[in-house]
Design a protein around this nucleic acid. Sequence first.
DNA 1: TACATATTCAAACGATTGTTTTAAATTCGC
DNA 2: GCGAATTTAAAACAATCGTTTGAATATGTA
Lengths: 238, 238
Amino acid sequence: MPKQRATKRRTAKGSGLPIASDRTRSRLLEAAGEMFAELGFHHATVRQICDRAGANIASVNYHFGDKTGLYTEVVRQSMRAARFDAVRAALDQHASSEEILRAVVKARLESLWGQDLPDWHFRILIHEISKPTLAMNQVVAEAIQPVYARLREVISKMLGLPADHEKTRLCAHSIIGQIMFYAFARPVITRLWPEMKMTASQLDRIANHIADFSLAYIRTAGAEHGKGKLPSEARKRR
Amino acid sequence: MPKQRATKRRTAKGSGLPIASDRTRSRLLEAAGEMFAELGFHHATVRQICDRAGANIASVNYHFGDKTGLYTEVVRQSMRAARFDAVRAALDQHASSEEILRAVVKARLESLWGQDLPDWHFRILIHEISKPTLAMNQVVAEAIQPVYARLREVISKMLGLPADHEKTRLCAHSIIGQIMFYAFARPVITRLWPEMKMTASQLDRIANHIADFSLAYIRTAGAEHGKGKLPSEARKRR
DNA sequence: TACATATTCAAACGATTGTTTTAAATTCGC
DNA sequence: GCGAATTTAAAACAATCGTTTGAATATGTA
């Protein structure tokens, strides 16, 4: 009766017993990560994953219970990935708010188009955003929510408004949206702008543009709210 | 031998023969549009579609050949949908560039969150962008490319730069990205900002924010590049 | 070595998918 | 109204999915 031993096995592992080869387990995780990042949860098949990992079909059942168990483990692993820490490091570095913002934008963009793969962690997050699974709550709580809050603090400082103010949130969305566009609309962009080659310098120009584009508004709005000036930006709005 | 009569039937239709009830065909198209918009191409099943349309399973084969035939027909129909015309109308209206931009942003956002469904045409485009199918080329050529080009012209006028200049393109991407963020990240937004209710006025505030956010940069950049020209055409308006 | 456990393997299972088949019902020109 | 074409209906087909089975093998321990 060796059915669904995944959790039981983990407890045995925790009890201090020496473990046999975790090679298949780790190979399974790596292969699953690449496949999930490339195809998403539903389109990636366990047979493909096991083939790529050189493991048997039943191994995913044995080690992770079922496909969703494997996926959630991949997601959990992705949350602690280096790239996210890079973004957090950029957010927490000791520098001016504007420089922090520029660094964050650059880090996020590089984790998207940078050819220094495998960085499928962020791509999994992309799939999770466009087609959420049950792991969504965990992803939001562990990876998105902290960065979102920290980004709002940085913007809040520049705007002179509280971090949970609507304008602060909308500015955060504007910045994130500009970045995510290059994640979601990748196939469209290559068709709309075929002569563009995503080199390192091109990536740099895009990141700087997004920073400049965003700071243009944040600076003026911050000057208004900070000095208590009359809002010249406030147009005749009904 | 009535197998795969879909194309043959169309030719008979073109030959001037009166057609029997196209009721099932149109009901199939409508049901398929809703299902494809909600679940995407792969996740929507022909059985669900036929159930919703009150038609038999084999009807999709008979009328459209296969599932992809049905999908491409739905896409073709979506291209001529009202909302896209609304955006194009906003782009071609006789007004200042800034007001055109504001109207375009508003039209796009309303086709996303507006509760005046069924407006699944744009949602199909969203799915097509995140997970392209073979219909992608058609979608880009017929729906995205024209709007993209027209939007660049509007921005080009404000920037004082050619429409295919890199900065013009990046500005267009920044604007589109801000809008699309509310399309792709919808489940994330509701988790990150749970107290937000997407009312009509909220939608209006978001649209105006995106316009203000974008115009802040475009105005200053336009003033720089268009030194010889009139700094802003918003002046002459009103 | 001998026993118990952990792990891997090939094969099959049940469910669901898109598609096809075969026949009945409906429609339309004549 | 009749015969041919069109349209619908129920059932089954073949392929693939995730999952399970039961035995074989590897591993660690006494």
